[in-house]
Design a binder for these strands. Structure first.
Lengths: 110, 110
DNA sequence: ATTTAATATTGCAATATTACGATAAAGATT
DNA sequence: AATCTTTATCGTAATATTGCAATATTAAAT
């Protein structure tokens, strides 16, 4: 098939998977890195920062935006892309939760 | 094309992307959920917990293992799968780092 | 030694992703 | 208005992922 069976999983599982999937490409991780590095979020030069053609970068930005990891607003001729803090906190919470659950069950595990 | 251009990104970016990608499917998130829930890590019944056929589950387990998110050991007739705490901590650190960097640059952003 | 039980592998079809050239769209500049 | 600059979209080729039936593997149980 090739289509993910999202129906059979919980909303939470699907939500985490969607966010993780969006970060599942080095170019998209690199975009986040860059957005964290630059002072402002006017980011007209992301294309120059990546070893990919402009349409490819645009596509990756779109995916990050669809997943909610970044926000984008048209600013005259350029576009202002910024990280959406809240969504990253969601992921942080998830991994913190996993780690603390691991801490609890440490003794039972191999 | 279709092949990710890993060569042009940093090791760290590729590492995060690989881990995120491994969690980029609800079935694999569900597997992690289940491993966290059960007391021991003898997990011969993962297949019954998921709405997917046995070969599909096996494949997802393999991917989680390849990414390093879980460890698997043959235990007689069954297999003992467990979460690899260290790797999850790596992800936790990443997201904590992103969040704290966001905290710093809050004022400059849109 | 057979059978049973649990997991892995193979092979394949359906679909998704990645990448980019060509082109479009839209505001800025001249 | 014509041009430039920046970003998005379309179309398409190459590759990857998802899912499962069929089969293999391996060890325990009979």
């Amino acid at each position: 098939m090739g289509a993910t069976k999202t129906d059979h999983f919980t909303d939470k599982q699907n939500a985490i998977a969607t966010l993780a999937k969006a970060l599942g490409h080095p170019a998209r991780v690199a975009i986040i890195d860059y957005l964290l590095k630059v002072d402002t979020c006017i980011c007209g030069d992301i294309v120059n920062e990546l070893p990919l053609a402009q349409p490819t970068v645009s596509q990756h930005l779109k995916e990050l935006k669809n997943a909610g990891l970044i926000k984008g607003e048209i600013e005259g001729n350029a576009i202002c892309y910024c990280i959406d803090e809240k969504i990253f906190q969601k992921l942080q919470n998830y991994f913190t939760s996993v780690s603390s659950k691991m801490e609890v069950k440490k003794s039972n595990c191999c």
